[in-house]
Each structure stands twice: as C-alpha cells, then as structure tokens.
C-alpha cells in the first residue's frame, strides 16, 4: 500500500476544551501524518514527558494555619501547598478570612496555631521585614502606595535591600552611594519598562490612574525580588478591559520574573482564566481545594457563593 507524508495542523485541548501550549507545559511532541490509501495514519512520538506537577518543588507550604481574634477564629486550620511557577487562587465570600491569610503570610499578624514554610524554611512568627527578605512580597486590596514619592521612587523603595549603602555614604555622597543609586535607578527603570509604566516614572504615585496604581503596586512588590508574590484582589474596581489586560500582565510577570503567584480574587472570570489551582475559604475554613475548574463546579462552592 502506498504511504505518503501529509502535513497536518495539530491543536491540543485539555478536558475543558481550552487550547494548551505543550512547550509551555515543558513537553515536546512530534506528530507525523501519513496518507494511506483513502485514510490517515498518525504517528505520535512523545519526545519529552512533561514534568509532573507534583515533582516541582514546593514554594509555600502552610500546615494548620490558624488565627484567633478574641473568640473569633478568623482562619482555622488552613493547609496550603503551592508549587514553583504555579498560579494559585484563594477565593471565598466576603469575610472568609482571605486577607487575614495574606497578613499572616507577610508577618503582619502572627498565627495562633500552625506554621508556614517558604521553600522549606520556617517563617512562622518572623517580622514582615525578615519575611520580605526571604522572598514573599505582596500588594494590597486597598492600594497602599507611597503617595508623596514618584513612581520611580516607589519602585526604588522596593529595591532598598538589594543596594547596600550606609547612612554615612549617603549623607556625604560617597562613591558607594552614587554607585548604589545608579544601580537602583537603572533596575527600577527596567522593572517599570517591563510593566509598561516607564513613561510615568516622574509622576507622583497618587496622580496615576487607578489601574496604573495597581500595576505600580505589583512593580514595587517585584522590585523586592520575591519568590512568592501575593496579589490581594488585583482586579478590584477594574472594568472588563482592564481585567483582561491585568490577566495578561499577571501571566507575563510569572514568566518574566519566575515567580510563584498566590492571588485573592472575586472576579471569577479572572480566577478561572488564569489560576491552575484553587483553595476556597468559607468562615475561615477550607471549603474545597484543587483544580480550578473542578473546584468551581462543586455544589458546596456554588452554594457558598450563591446561597441555597
């Protein structure tokens, strides 16, 4: 029988029908198609298996994280496991304790029980400063920029710990100061360029439009060179177009800066669009946890959001 080579266009879809880029998943597949008589024959060779998700190292691990304010258990027994390069969502109705989780992970609150680890290192009870130096940075639900500083200076504050320079050398403009200022300024400009904010670098932070302020918060957090980036409702108050742009930005940031991202969000479009895994909190407890689309379809999650 005659066997001729044919060209085909292949597209891989996941079980929800979304297109998947195999290269992004770390897979290499070669597909060859042949025309045999009236039919086709496909020869699929998997050259490189994808790295299994649970093979990637764990960046953040939390075990039984709990906090109690008086008689109120704001967060009760939270377990999290976030792997390198993951985009992880933390959702839940208002008052579920999501932001409290962030406050514990950044050291603003001390957990009553439980521990959390960044890359295997126990950070429970550390100060915000130490936690930031270990590599956790965050943005805030209600934007907290340094309003009397310019956009550039905001990012440079994030870079502070990476450009060593004493008070004395700054006071007398010694070469050390000039050098570290130059490095900081260049890196800040670079981060702003990547985030598309460079043209605003001389503006005061408070004069930026809302969406740009959110972006600047992300830029400032990235300047501290984090391993894990916590985004607290990045899409709050944004219109659908801005949300779409934000989704692209978040994906882009993850690739470009090689960070793992944990985000709190109410916008389900954004969550289902970019998060790979989810944890749903309700009244401080885990309601569901796992693959985004599977979790979002669970009846108890739907009930928690929409009521009976």
């Amino acid at each position: 029988m005659k066997k001729t080579k044919a060209s085909v266009r292949t597209e891989v879809l996941d079980k929800y029908g979304r297109p998947v880029d195999l290269k992004e998943e770390g897979m290499d597949v070669q597909v060859e198609a042949y025309r045999i008589g009236g039919g086709f024959d496909l020869d699929i060779k998997i050259k490189k298996e994808p790295p299994k998700k649970h093979d990637r190292p764990i960046v953040l691990k939390a075990t039984g994280l709990s906090i109690q304010f008086g008689g109120l258990k704001a967060v009760d027994g939270l377990d999290l496991e976030i792997r390198e390069g993951e985009l992880y969502g933390l959702i839940g109705p208002n008052g579920a304790g999501k932001t409290t989780v962030f406050n514990m992970l950044t050291g603003i609150y001390k957990p009553t029980f439980g521990r959390f680890f960044l890359c295997g290192k126990d950070l429970t009870g550390k100060t915000p400063l130490e936690i930031n130096r270990e590599g956790i940075a965050r943005t805030f639900q209600n934007i907290r920029l340094f309003n009397s500083l310019t956009v550039l200076e905001n990012v440079m504050v994030g870079l502070n710990n990476q450009v060593p320079c004493t008070v004395w050398s700054s006071m007398f403009r010694l070469p050390r100061h000039m050098k570290s200022e130059k490095i900081a300024r260049e890196r800040a400009h670079e981060i702003l360029r990547i985030m598309g904010l460079d043209e605003y670098s001389d503006y005061l932070a408070q004069n930026l439009p809302y969406g740009k302020q959110r972006k600047l918060e992300i830029a400032r957090a990235l300047a501290t060179n984090p391993k894990l980036l916590l985004l607290d409702e990045p899409a709050a108050g944004m219109n659908p177009n801005e949300t779409q742009e934000l989704m692209d930005t978040i994906r882009f940031v993850r690739e470009k800066f090689k960070v793992t991202i944990l985000l709190i969000e109410h916008d389900m479009k954004l969550v289902s669009g970019i998060c790979e895994n989810l944890t749903v909190l309700n009244f401080g407890q885990i309601l569901a946890s796992g693959d985004t689309h599977e979790v979002l379809n669970r009846p108890e999650v739907v009930k928690a959001y929409l009521g009976d």
Binding site: T106, G107, I108, T127, P128, L129, N132, R133, A137, R138, F140, R144, L145, F146, N147, S148, L149, E153, M156, V157, G158, L159, N160, N161, V163, C165, V167, S170, M171, F172, R173, H177, S180, E181, A184, R220, A221, T224
Partner: peptide
C-alpha cells in the same frame, strides 16, 4: 543628601504608609 538617598525614600515611605513600607522590606 540623606533625604534624596535610599534612606530618605525609606523614611518617606514610612510616613506615607507604614504597613506597606514594612512589607516592602523597609526596616
């Protein structure tokens, strides 16, 4: 000079928002 350096920026950051400054690694 001090106020135009990284130290000055950190000091102003504390004034603007202490919590944000802390989480951005300002001592």
């Amino acid at each position: 000079n001090l106020m135009k350096s990284k130290h000055g920026r950190a000091i102003q950051a504390i004034k603007d928002n202490e919590i944000a400054a802390r989480t951005m690694g300002v001592n």
